[in-house]
Simulated scan of single mutants.
Amino acid sequence: MSHWTDDLDADGGDPAELSVRPYTITQGRTAPSRDDLTLITIVTTVDPPPGRAAARGLQPEHLVILRQCRGSAAVAEVSAELNLPVSVTKILIDDLVARGQVTTRPPIAMAVGSESNMNLLRAVRDGLRRL
């Protein structure tokens, strides 16, 4: 898979170019229009309509998102795959939501008040503290 960083030379490339590309692919936007996209929001590609019209006006990164999210992926996973900041990834996902090409949802919610879920959360918390 080709990332925009693949074109950098061995010494890391031009730092100005690194900041220009995200600005370009987001058309200068610094935040998505929606505020419900978090690192763990699940993104799923909607079945595309027939033909190439669905790809018109999309950046290569949008197409990567559409391919990656055929089986659903979290925003953090998409960001890592794109090798882009999460803020840029959220803007790109927001573009696709507005076009009706992906859907988003929070992760499967835990049952409220479930003792087994609380025990699991405590065990995870305790394990993280030990790290």
Rank of each mutant, 00 (worst) to 15 (best):
M1G: 13
M1A: 06
M1P: 08
S2R: 15
T5S: 14
D7Y: 06
G12M: 10
G13T: 11
D14L: 07
E17T: 10
S19K: 02
Y23E: 06
Y23D: 08
T26A: 04
T26P: 13
R29W: 04
R29V: 02
P32D: 06
S33M: 15
R34E: 04
D35Y: 03
D36H: 13
D36V: 05
L37K: 10
T38D: 04
T38M: 05
I42W: 03
I42G: 07
V43N: 02
V46M: 12
P49H: 06
P49N: 08
P49M: 08
A53K: 10
R56Y: 13
G57I: 14
G57F: 11
Q59W: 10
Q59C: 05
L63V: 12
V64L: 04
L66A: 10
L66M: 10
L66S: 11
L66W: 09
L66F: 10
S72Q: 12
A73G: 06
A74I: 01
S79M: 07
S79Q: 11
S79L: 05
L82S: 12
P85M: 02
V88T: 15
V88C: 12
T89G: 11
I91L: 13
D95W: 15
L96S: 08
A98R: 13
V102P: 04
I108H: 05
A109N: 05
M110F: 09
A111F: 00
A111Q: 05
V112E: 07
G113Y: 09
N117R: 12
L128H: 06
L128C: 14
R129Y: 13
R130P: 00
R130W: 01
L131R: 14
